[in-house]
């Protein structure tokens, strides 16, 4: 059943990329437990605008947990307390009257803060550009049923492909590594028969591009806990294995 709760928010405010940031405290009273977390922030922003204060900048788009635009550190947890749930799908019924909630942007050197809670995640696109594709020009594809893919393989590739590119794995990682993101993208393609031709080149290029922008993975496993799509850390293990093989094979392939 819905109820109204009163909250105290400690929100990170930062005027721009090079400005000093600080926490500002806001009272958020009379919030319905049926509201989503972002709707709660919408309400706070409406009240700020009414009072003549600039609203809190936070990003969101689909509000259905699939576009990956939203993403907040809520009480130190990426996307908040509900497992397997993006910030936009988190509802206030997960909180209680009188709660204090600390809201921060993703914290990582490779995700510079743009303003308040919004960060720049372009480094993730660079990882895709390094090899997160199968090279097939438009029109060059054979009939889709020419190559059967065992259902189990397709399903596992799908589990990896479910990544929404939100960056929670980076925010949760003590090293700020984007290893879960990278591994999910690598394995989605490496598992499929269509992805074999570029498997080794892809693995090496994507892992090394990841390392150029982000920290290195040391198997903390925090990423798996934070992932709103619950992508298993197994993909990291498989990617590490592929990476070692790739280092050898790519030298051989190059002659």
């Amino acid at each position: 059943m819905s109820a109204e709760i009163n909250l105290t928010l400690k929100v990170w405010r930062q005027a721009g990329p090079s400005a000093e940031g600080r926490f500002v405290t806001y009272e958020a009273d009379g919030i319905s437990t049926d509201a989503s977390f972002l709707e709660m922030l919408d309400i706070v922003n409406e009240r700020l605008i009414e009072a003549g204060d600039e609203p809190i900048v936070f990003e969101s788009d689909c509000r259905e947990g699939i576009c990956g635009t939203c993403g907040l550190m809520i009480n130190g947890q990426a996307h908040g307390p509900q497992k397997g749930t993006a910030t936009c799908q988190l509802h206030m019924r997960s909180f209680s009257d009188g709660d204090h909630i600390v809201i921060e942007p993703w914290r990582a050197t490779s995700f510079p803060v743009l303003r308040d809670l919004a960060v720049d995640r372009r480094a993730m696109d660079a990882i895709i550009g390094a090899g997160g594709y199968i090279s097939v020009n438009t029109g060059a594809a054979p009939d889709a049923n020419l190559t059967p893919v065992p259902k189990e393989t397709a399903d596992t590739a799908f589990d990896a492909a479910a990544c929404i590119g939100c960056g929670a794995c980076v925010a949760a990682c003590p090293n700020s590594a984007a290893q879960l993101f990278t591994a999910a993208k690598v394995q989605h393609l490496n598992l499929l028969p269509q992805g074999q031709a570029q498997r080794w080149a892809r693995t090496e290029a994507m892992v090394e591009t990841m390392e150029a922008f982000f920290g290195s993975c040391t198997n903390h496993g925090e990423c798996e806990e934070a992932c709103p799509k619950e992508i298993p850390i197994d993909f990291i293990a498989w990617t590490n294995r592929d990476y070692i093989k790739a280092k050898v094979k790519n030298r051989k392939l190059a002659g």
Partner: peptide, 17 residues
């Protein structure tokens, strides 16, 4: 055809099609 070649993981039957 194009999407499948790109690696789009469409649902499949047990026979792989």
């Amino acid at each position: 055809d194009q999407a499948t070649a790109q690696g789009v993981p469409f649902a499949r039957e047990y026979g792989g099609l």
